[in-house]
Amino acid sequence: MKLTAEKITKEYPRLRAGSNYFTAVQPVDFALEAGRVTEITGRSGSGKSTLLNMLAGLLTPTAGRVLLDDTDLYALPDGQLSRLRNRHIGVVPQGQTALQSLTVLENVLLPAQLYGDGKAALPRARHLLEQMGIASLADVRPKELSGGELRRMAIARALINGPAVLLADEPTGDLDDENTAAVLGLLRDTARQGAAVLLVTHEAEAARYADEIWHMEAGAPTRWE
C-alpha cells in the first residue's frame, strides 16, 4: 500500500490584523512507500505535526487530496474513513496517550476491539509486547510505566492491526538516549517488515534510521538529498 498526498495544504483563519489566513502547511506533494522510513524534521511550530495529521486522515486539508492507494481519504464519510484508518494506518501520537483505566495489554488490544471483539488479536498483542521488550508489564497499569515503556506500548498499539502505514509524531520526545535509540530501532524494524513509516521528529539521531528526510520550515516542506 502507498500513501500519497497531492498538493495538500492547510490554512487557518487568523483573527489578528494583516493576512486573513495563516498557512500551517504550504502545498506539497508527498508519498510514503512500503518498507521505507521517511523522516520530517524541523523546529517546533514548523507544521510537521499538521502534515502528519493530514496524512493520518485526522485533519481535513484546506486543499489537495490524500490517497491510500486509490482511495481519497477525505472523500469518505467519517464512519468509513475511521474504519480504514483503524485497519491500515497506525498512529503513534505525540506525548503520553495511554488510557489509564486499562492495563498495558488492554491498551494494546484496543484498536483491534473497536470493530470486533479482538480475541483473534490477543496472540499478536502478546508477540508485539515481546518484541517491544515489555511483555512482563502486560497486566500493569500505565501509571507504573516509565516514559520509554509507555512509548513502546504506544508503538505496539499502533501496530496491533498490522497497518500498512505507521505515522509516529515525536516518538522520542523526553526520552533518554538509550530509549531513543530503542524506539528508533523499533520503527526501523517495522519498516523492514513492510510498513511505510513516517517519523516526525526534531531528534538529530533519527537521521541515521531514515531512508528519506524532509525538512519543514514555516510550513514549507523541502526534501533533503
Binding site: 483503524n86 485497519r87 484498536p111
Partner: peptide, 16 residues
Amino acid sequence: KKEFAVLRVMGAARGR
C-alpha cells in the same frame, strides 16, 4: 478529551 482524541486516532468514528 485527550483520551477521546486517542480513541479517535485509533480509528473510532465520531458516532462511536
